[in-house]
Design a protein around this nucleic acid. Structure first.
Lengths: 222, 222
DNA sequence: GATATGAATAATGAATACAAAATACAAACC
DNA sequence: GGTTTGTATTTTGTATTCATTATTCATATC
């Protein structure tokens, strides 16, 4: 253990926010479901004050909906919500790509290349879980390379919304192969510092992701 | 009084969020200043519970910074923060412009034209306050025309950040004239349903806004 | 039988009370 | 004089209590 390490004693409400957000994203709290303060207090063994603070934060983040005197409920995402989020995510990812090309170090690009190669391996091994993990790291790395914390923040809520859909999503083999191709094109673009091109690829990448959602996740809505 | 009017009994914390946010944006709470719970409770005549909930929400929105056991303080925006926000606002405004061209009704376009004409009048009358008011309504209208509530939400926090800077900003006459020109170009683009073009204009419009900030607001930082 | 009314119950909203941590400050020590 | 250490005060974090509003369900009425 490091001597410089500080003891982390973060407030309860912070811990609760993370736990509840994960529960929502992972589907343990179902969309539309009412949040019972009492039940959650008992479940987590805390009093209502920190729990209520956590609920307020999650409502501000858009995961919960508050109705006065009627409590909170998990926001239900429809296909429309994802369709709305798509052009935004596309635009933000494009900006990230452009900035990444401007600011990335060679070491980071090498790292991206490595992660992409390993992700391709996971695809070839038909390991979806492993693929998703590396995929997340790659998108995270590109965000870092953009050197824009405000952009990272702005993207976070939307991308966690997407993450929520992912838990139920099974890509078609053809689509999966295409996604891998797109990632290889990204590496190529960033190696040549082609910012605009990378931006375009990332925008298209997001569009394709939506098409998966339309095809699989919300089939019942149409 | 209307018979259909509902009694508004929104929770205190909601009211407090709005009041505090305005105070921050309008500069009544100075950047870096520590938020004393006790002082604010007395000022607003409420107990700590709703105030703390409001503080948590404002921290989630990025207006306050929370340090465990050490309370909240007003986030200090530097030139860097605005430089980071610029490409994001530019991208989001461009998306709004594109979508607006696709979805606006003729009536809305006429409304936009009218507002722009009136704003131009305010410019000619050298009435900055009146100009800003109409300017806000115009940008709000374009957002509405985009028919994308998620986009509206995503933009909100950033644009309120910008609003905060505006309170100290005095445009140069030349710059002001240019801004008016840009707005007239916007009307022209939307009348011809030139989405990509409108997107480009709005992006440039934001860039110019940043240049104002760099020139006036943060002169001391360089 | 269906709707409307009202009391009982349960939930949320807000205030207070208590616990723990940080800050301020004074006294002791080098 | 400057640093350190211990105590008092203040502030934040959490729990509990009280008040108000919704919901439920039984009863009454049409």
């Amino acid at each position: 253990m490091s001597l410089t390490e500080t003891i982390d004693r973060r407030p309860l409400h912070h811990e609760l926010v993370d736990r509840l957000r994960d529960m929502i994203i992972e589907g343990q709290l179902e969309p539309g479901q009412k949040i019972s303060e009492k039940a959650l207090c008992e479940r987590f063994g805390v009093s209502r004050t920190p729990l209520r603070e956590a609920v307020k934060i999650l409502a501000a983040e858009g995961f919960l909906k508050l109705t006065p005197h009627r409590g909170a409920s998990v926001v239900k995402l429809t296909l429309k919500d994802f369709e709305e989020a798509l052009p935004i995510m596309g635009a933000l990812d494009a900006v990230a790509g452009e900035l990444a090309c401007q600011n990335a170090t060679e070491a980071e690009i090498a790292k991206l290349e490595d992660l992409t190669a390993r992700m391709t391996e996971r695809f070839e091994a038909d390991d979806l879980i492993g693929y998703y993990k590396l995929n997340s790291r790659i998108h995270q790395l590109i965000m870092e390379m953009a050197r824009n914390p405000t952009l990272t923040r702005s993207t976070r809520v939307l991308s966690e919304r997407m993450r929520r859909a992912r838990y139920e999503l099974n890509m078609s083999p053809a689509r999966w192969a295409q996604a891998v191709d797109e990632h290889q094109a990204m590496v190529k673009a960033i190696k040549n510092r082609k910012g605009v091109q990378l931006g375009r690829i990332m925008k298209v990448h997001v569009i394709h992701k939506l098409q998966d959602l339309q095809a699989h996740l919300f089939a019942e809505e149409r």
